[in-house]
Structure formats: structure tokens, C-alpha cells
């Protein structure tokens, strides 16, 4: 085979390999949506953050509008302090919006759902969401259900 054709095929091969890596980065791992670019930070305190992890989604109306960037224990308030990075173009969240930790499916991953409030003031960088609802702990729920069954069978 002529050297020129050889070089061309090898070049195409290497390009295909690099292109595959690019596809894996953008299309498969969704690197573009995880990029920390234009975001602002919002905080929320939860009584129980069990199961929530960093990089978990923050959604509103089911659409991802940011991600959890940090989870720490607040030793003064005995709560879990969650730091969220919200995309900059979502700048119309009323300051009395509510954040709740919800589960995707019965056993799926935990994420934060934000339901819209009615205030005229909008959340800005560094603000806190006061209205929060903790993670649903399945064991507690089952325990309460069992307790109810026992007390109702006593009557």
C-alpha cells in the first residue's frame, strides 16, 4: 500500500478513537451538564439528609436546574446543611420556595425537588431556603405503619 494511503487510514483510525472518547465524554457521561460554569449557591437545612449525595440533581417540575455540591453537619442547629449550585439562567426562584428530598422510584437515587413559592423576592447567591422537607426514611415509615396496625387491632 502506498505510504500516503497508509497515513490517511491511520489518521482516520486515530481520529475515530479520539472522537469516541469525545462522544463518551459529552453524550454518555453528560459532562456538559455537569460543568461548573455559571451557577449560584443556595443553602438549605434538612433534619435528615439520609441517602442524598453530592452531585445529586436539584430539580424543579422534574427538570434538572442544578446539583448538590456539598453536604455538611451543622453542629449548632443539629441539621444537615446542603449546598446547592443552581444554574444562573434559573434566576426566578421565589425566596419562599420549598426544598424537599425525594426519591426517584421506590428504591432509586435521592434528589432535591424544589417547589415554587409566591414571594416577590427572588433567591440570590448565598441565600437559604427555609421551607424544607426531609428525606423519607423507609424504616421509620414501616415502623409507624406497624405501630398503627397494632394500636388499631387493640381497639
Amino acid at each position: 500500500m502506498r505510504m500516503r494511503t497508509l497515513e490517511l487510514t491511520v489518521g482516520v483510525f486515530i481520529l475515530a478513537g479520539l472522537l469516541a472518547l469525545a462522544v463518551l465524554a459529552v453524550r454518555v457521561s453528560g459532562l456538559s451538564t455537569n460543568a461548573t460554569g455559571d451557577v449560584y449557591k443556595v443553602y438549605a437545612h434538612f433534619d435528615n439528609v439520609s441517602g442524598l449525595t453530592t452531585r445529586a440533581r436539584v430539580t424543579m417540575a422534574g427538570v434538572t436546574i442544578g446539583q448538590v455540591t456539598d453536604i455538611q453537619f451543622d453542629k449548632n442547629r443539629y441539621t444537615g446543611r446542603v449546598e446547592m449550585a443552581i444554574f444562573d439562567d434559573v434566576d426566578t426562584l421565589p425566596s419562599d420556595s420549598a426544598a424537599s428530598i425525594v426519591t426517584a422510584g421506590l428504591l432509586g437515587e435521592k434528589y432535591i425537588g424544589i417547589s415554587v413559592g409566591g414571594d416577590d423576592m427572588m433567591l440570590a447567591d448565598g441565600d437559604e431556603i427555609y421551607d424544607t422537607q426531609s428525606a423519607l426514611v423507609l424504616e421509620e415509615l414501616i415502623g409507624r405503619f406497624l405501630l398503627n396496625t397494632v394500636s388499631s387491632s387493640d381497639e
Binding site: L21, L24, A25, R27, V28, S29, G30, L31, T33, N34, R55, R57, E109
Partner: peptide
């Protein structure tokens, strides 16, 4: 199919 994949796959950890 694609969005679950993008949520689960981390570029640094997996790729």
C-alpha cells in the same frame, strides 16, 4: 435511556 445514562456515568470515575 440517554438521561439515566448521563446521570449515572461520571466522566472522571467511569470513562
Amino acid at each position: 435511556y440517554w438521561s439515566n445514562m448521563q446521570n449515572a456515568v461520571q466522566f472522571g470515575d467511569d470513562v
